[in-house]
Simulated assay, not measured.
Amino acid sequence: MTMQFFDAEATARLTPFPVLVDALAQACLEAARGEIASPARLVVPLNQGGIMLAMPAAARDLAIHKLVTVCPANRARALPTIHGHVSVCDPDTGEALFALDGPTVTGRRTAAVTLLAMRTFLPAPPRHILLIGTGTQALHHAHALAAVYPEARVLVQGSGPGRAQAFCANHGNSLDIRAHEGDAIPDTVDTVITVTTSTRPVYDEPARADRLVIGVGAFTPEMAEIGPRTLQGSALYVDDQAGARHEAGDFIQAGIDWARVTALADALAVHGAARLAEYGADTTPVVFKSVGCAAWDLAACRVARAAVR
């Protein structure tokens, strides 16, 4: 049989955000219990500073392998920086079932992890969100927020003059977003989400109990989006502790004591799915750092498999 391949548009249709968030909550708990095998990703160098990433994961019901390439030189070629796919297999027979577009799976499951963190740590649905960044991951997050929190006001801040305006001009017809220019963040913002690849903090405000801060974009020790002033005054959570120790540049550069860092799975396990929205109702500021792992890709593939069936 020829394995069916779903392109980016089809992959997005097969992984709706509300269902994906629930699947990620389940996978997060399973990974913490050792029920999903998700080894550290293999990184292979390519030409001109490019890399190939291999990320397998397996559970009793499904096995997946994400293979993607990241080639920064593609910007000069007018080509996407990231290419790849996710192969989905039967864990009993090894039979290939179907394949999904790799960058779309990565973008959507990453945005869904952010939604899960918001559902976990915010005492109520967000009303005013600041999205810092104007790249591909910012777009995935804008779509995710529109799908799950359509009543929230979303501001977009760019890394340079005019970038936020251009982002909103390109995507404002389908998304209710507004450009935010200037350094002063509105006091009413209750959620800040950073989705940049910056090497210096783009957010370093004093920690606030009424503002959840989520770092997504920095994924190497050299990158840092959230500054030490915010980190030092906050309770710190990560989606994957093993990966964060090597990839969470925000925490690494700030010299964070890892004994202070708690896994998202611990918050989910303690409070239970039915009480997720109640968590964070105390007065402790929270910073959540997302670095990703193949177990989250497996969760997205579960959602897609159910839709394909």
Rank of each mutant, 00 (worst) to 15 (best):
H141E: 13
L24Y: 01
A58Q: 08
I82H: 03
A267N: 04
G272D: 05
A265R: 07
A299R: 01
N74M: 06
P285D: 06
F219P: 05
T110A: 10
T104K: 04
R153S: 14
I51T: 15
F5V: 14
W258Y: 06
R41W: 00
R119C: 02
A147Y: 13
V44N: 14
D61L: 07
A111T: 01
R200D: 12
A57P: 02
A207E: 09
D266R: 10
D22S: 15
V21M: 03
A254H: 02
A146F: 07
R302H: 13
D92I: 12
I256Y: 00
A31W: 01
A304H: 04
E151I: 01
A244Q: 01
F167T: 07
A277Q: 14
F17G: 10
W296M: 02
T199Y: 14
T284K: 00
P45C: 03
P18A: 05
L20I: 04
A12G: 12
A138Q: 01
D204I: 07
A12D: 09
T262I: 14
D176C: 14
L116Q: 06
R305T: 00
A146G: 08
T284W: 00
D240V: 03
N173Q: 13
P91R: 12
A23V: 08
V189N: 06
P123F: 04
P39G: 04
G243H: 09
H246D: 11
T134Q: 00
L298V: 09
V68A: 06
A295H: 07
L131F: 08
R77Q: 13
F98I: 08
L115R: 05
H65D: 03
N170W: 02
S198E: 04
D239Q: 01
V86I: 11
T69W: 03
E9W: 10
V88M: 04
L100F: 05
V195L: 15
Q232G: 15
P123D: 14
L231W: 09
D266M: 12
A263I: 01
G233P: 13
K66Y: 04
V68Y: 07
L298D: 05
R75E: 09
C293A: 10
D183P: 14
P206V: 08
G255L: 11
G50R: 09
R305E: 01
D183W: 06
N170E: 12
L131E: 03
L115D: 01
D92L: 15
L24N: 03
V261Q: 03
Y279M: 08
A235P: 07
P228E: 10
D250I: 12
A274K: 12
V148F: 05
I51Q: 14
N47G: 02
T120D: 04
Y237I: 10
G94S: 07
A144D: 00
E30L: 10
P201E: 10
A244Y: 10
L116F: 06
E247Q: 13
P285L: 06
Q241K: 11
A269E: 13
R108D: 02
G255D: 09
F17L: 11
A31E: 00
T81A: 08
V287D: 05
Q232N: 15
N173M: 02
F288L: 06
K289F: 04
A10V: 06
L42S: 14
P80Q: 07
T230M: 10
L46G: 11
